[in-house]
Design a protein around this nucleic acid. Structure first.
Length: 190
DNA sequence: ATATCGATTATCT
DNA sequence: GATAATCGATATG
């Protein structure tokens, strides 16, 4: 699912405004067999969506600061999801900048809008109260995933970021060379 | 360019 | 009571 989601488009519809951004970086979390997954400990009120049917938004709050967006990916009863980590803005850039409360200095500054899971959630106004449990497969939802036929190109696979367990598993999928992938541009050597 | 640290709260042990 | 699927500011080279 992580591989399939790359190149698709996350859309926020609300009133007359539409936000759209291409998915360029995601991570897979495998459920009860994956120690890094929120669902590793079993079903709780917080993680219920991950155990529900596929295609629904799992939104969690972390570090007292940030929301992050996942989509559930396994049949009902089995946990598993994909975390959205990086988006390339396509429409509604002004609105995203306002939601992020930043002033864009130029085109090179665009990644500050949606590069990183907390950033993209803020740019799209995603909160747990508003979006957890939303059907991401339906354009009738305020938040959904569309397909404009964009060819994803070369895909790179790396270990996941920001976790302390199962750090060796390669479950992070990115569009090679895309500037909206999160993390440092020149990674430390060795 | 890299490293360190504080913010701030829902969730689980 | 500890921790976390992060970010931005600050310090240092």
């Amino acid at each position: 699912m992580a591989r399939e989601l790359l190149g698709k488009v996350l859309v926020r519809d609300g009133g007359k405004l539409r936000l759209a951004a291409r998915i360029v970086e995601v991570e897979a979390y495998l459920g009860q067999n994956d120690p890094a997954s929120h669902s590793a400990v079993g079903k709780t009120a917080r993680t219920a969506v991950l155990f529900g049917p596929p295609g629904y938004a799992y939104v969690y709050f972390i570090y007292g600061n940030h929301y992050c967006l996942n989509v559930s990916c396994e049949p009902e009863g089995k946990a598993g999801g994909v975390l959205f980590r990086g988006l390339e803005p396509l429409a509604g850039i002004e609105e995203m900048a306002r939601a992020r409360r930043i002033l864009l200095q130029g085109p090179r500054d665009l990644p500050r809008l949606t590069s990183g899971p907390g950033r993209l959630a803020e740019a799209f106004g995603i909160t747990r109260a508003r979006d957890n449990g939303c059907d991401l497969t339906s354009p009738k939802s305020g938040l959904w995933i569309g397909d404009d036929g964009f060819p994803p190109g070369k895909i790179e696979i790396t270990p996941r970021i920001g976790i302390s367990k199962a750090t060796d598993r390669r479950l992070r999928y990115i569009l090679a060379g895309n500037p909206f992938v999160s993390g440092r541009k020149t990674p430390a050597r060795d």
